[in-house]
Simulated scan of single mutants.
Amino acid sequence: MAEPDPKKIGDFVSHSQISEVAEAFRKIAQTAIETKLIVSQSRRDEDVKHIMINMLSYVSRQCTYIAQDVEQPIEKIAWAVRNLFELNLEFRSIQVLQSWKKYIAARARDEVDMLEGILSFADDQETDPAKTLIARIEELKAIAQRNGFDISKRDQTNYRQLAVISGVEQEYLGFYRFYSKFIHPTSWLINASDESKDSFESRNIFYIQGQKYSWDLIFRIKDELDKDE
């Protein structure tokens, strides 16, 4: 598979005027929606199309969120860009491992985690609501097992490992060191002056990275579709 051309991606990235940044993210959101239609009409396996369409929907939502207020607090921008970066890692690793079906199966494991988390708050698991949650957990495990997946144990793969699989570990480490200071209540985020933590330079890093990883994912999806042409 050909790598997306970095120069081509760079041509799409805007970071000059606030109005231009907002328009750039709106353009990504619209392109993601348009690409969903292309995916839906392709000949790819239904599981693959399901993942692509849902990932494009997520890109569109996050980019729309940023575009609606590009001057919102920087930690909000950081959250959205971090999510776009991690989504990009998810897709890259799926491509490398060809783990389309496993990724869909992980949705059931995620729901089990959520339900088990809710159950942990219950003092009595013999109540009707608790029993309903337990029954749903068992149903999800049975469905996964019938489809050849064991979701009884959590997948311990983290985003650094996905970055290694995708061949971008150094990029991950650098970006993680930067954005982690903005998405957690770190001493930097709490104690630094507004001028320091919400600088022009920091915002531009998030604006550029958000566009970069969004366009990269869109290009990768289109490139993946080209395999069937």
Rank of each mutant, 00 (worst) to 15 (best):
K49C: 00
E20G: 06
L89H: 12
H184E: 04
S60L: 05
S196I: 14
L140R: 05
E3F: 05
L189D: 03
V81C: 01
D124H: 07
V13N: 04
L173D: 15
V48T: 09
G174W: 15
N204G: 00
A144K: 01
E138L: 07
F206Q: 05
Q170V: 12
P73A: 02
G117Q: 02
S166A: 15
D216F: 11
I38Y: 02
K131W: 00
N147S: 04
D128K: 12
R177L: 15
R177M: 15
E116P: 06
R43Y: 04
T64K: 07
T132W: 11
F149D: 05
Q95S: 11
I18D: 03
L119T: 14
A67K: 03
D113E: 12
D69E: 09
A22D: 04
A2W: 09
I218T: 05
D124I: 07
E139W: 02
A108F: 10
E71Q: 12
A122D: 14
Q68I: 09
S196T: 13
D223M: 05
R82Q: 08
E34P: 03
W215T: 02
F182S: 05
Q209Y: 06
Y159W: 15
T157I: 10
Y159Q: 03
A135D: 13
Q161C: 00
I151S: 08
A142H: 08
L133S: 11
Q209G: 07
K131Q: 10
T31C: 11
Q170H: 11
A142Y: 09
E201D: 14
L84M: 14
D110C: 12
S199K: 01
A163T: 07
A192S: 10
Y179K: 00
